[in-house]
């Protein structure tokens, strides 16, 4: 089972749900989590432990000045402005390069080969006997966040149960996170923003044909609008977490309600069974 926890709106509690779910499930099975929010990874905050780090590298063009005839083909091809032919030289902006390799493909002289540079890292740790934590981190100033997500996901590939903590929004990194997964949990809050962005996220998830359930977080008990939206979107509400001082206190000290309260541990285990059921798995 490969399950994504996503949201649309930021700050609704994706990581809270992913972390609690992961902890609850480690009682009965081996769990691998992947923090795909590579621009602001935070899942590891709930599971402090030493990690191993591997760099994420991406191809960038290197130009052989002896072969290059300054014909300009590479510069015309690159839509990101990463390579330009300016009078007597080929000028590179590595940070604009998306690593597609097109410049080398169109070069008639074979003057461009792939060089590599580091754009981020993937960290791996083992905070509990049956829990593996994988997380991507994009270096500051870099644009290729999806490449780091891809590397992080690749490190987890093949594990029987993977929980992906998605980035907020519905952009490229979320799309990259949703590729090749089996089911999705959308975390929302009962505010107009929460409802609005839930609908956006639901539309994206539908494109992937993913079985999906909803978690309403920080519920003040007046969830009418949110529940109506879920009915219209044909998404089952699988869990409601109340807006509660005690829960907030656990969260604020980096704790997990599924670790500290037996009831929540059970509820998160049930949440997993429910989303499997929505996805047709038993």
């Amino acid at each position: 089972m490969r399950l994504v926890v996503a949201s649309g709106k930021g700050g609704t509690g994706k990581t809270t749900v992913a972390a609690n779910l992961a902890h609850a499930l480690t009682r009965s099975r081996e769990v691998v989590t992947v923090d795909c929010d590579v621009e602001a990874p935070n899942l590891h905050l709930f599971f402090p432990s030493p990690s191993r780090e591997v760099p994420v590298r991406t191809p960038v063009p290197a130009v052989d000045r002896d072969r290059c005839t300054l014909c300009g083909a590479c510069g015309h091809f690159c839509r990101f402005g990463a390579i330009s032919v300016l009078r007597s030289e080929v000028f590179l902006f590595p940070e604009l390069c998306h690593g597609c390799g097109g410049c080398g493909y169109v070069c008639p002289e074979g003057a461009i080969r792939d060089d590599h540079r580091t754009i981020g890292s993937v960290r791996c740790s083992r905070p509990a006997p049956s829990l593996t934590l994988i997380g991507g981190a994009l270096n500051e100033g870099e644009v290729q966040a999806p490449a780091v997500v891809r590397h992080a996901k690749r490190l987890a590939a093949g594990a029987p149960l993977i929980i992906y903590d998605a980035p907020p929004g519905i952009g490229c990194t979320v799309i990259e996170t949703l590729k090749g997964v089996d089911a999705c949990l959308l975390v929302t809050e009962s505010t107009p923003f929460g409802v609005h962005d839930l609908a956006l996220a639901a539309a994206v998830v539908r494109q992937f044909g993913l079985p999906t359930g909803v978690v309403i977080n920080r519920s003040d008990g007046e969830d009418g609008e949110t529940r109506r939206a879920c009915r219209e979107l044909e998404l089952p509400v699988l869990m409601t977490i109340p807006f509660d001082r005690e829960i907030a206190a656990v969260q604020n000290r980096g704790g997990l309600i599924s670790r500290e309260y037996e009831g929540w541990n059970r509820r998160f285990s049930t949440l997993f069974e429910d989303v499997c059921r929505v996805g047709g798995e038993t």
């Binding site: 300009g72 990101f80 330009s84």
Partner: peptide, 16 residues
């Protein structure tokens, strides 16, 4: 009207 990275491309255009 393009996305990011048009600065160097515009330079290449006027240089040519």
């Amino acid at each position: 009207g393009g996305p990011g990275g048009i600065g160097p491309r515009a330079v290449q255009f006027v240089v040519e």
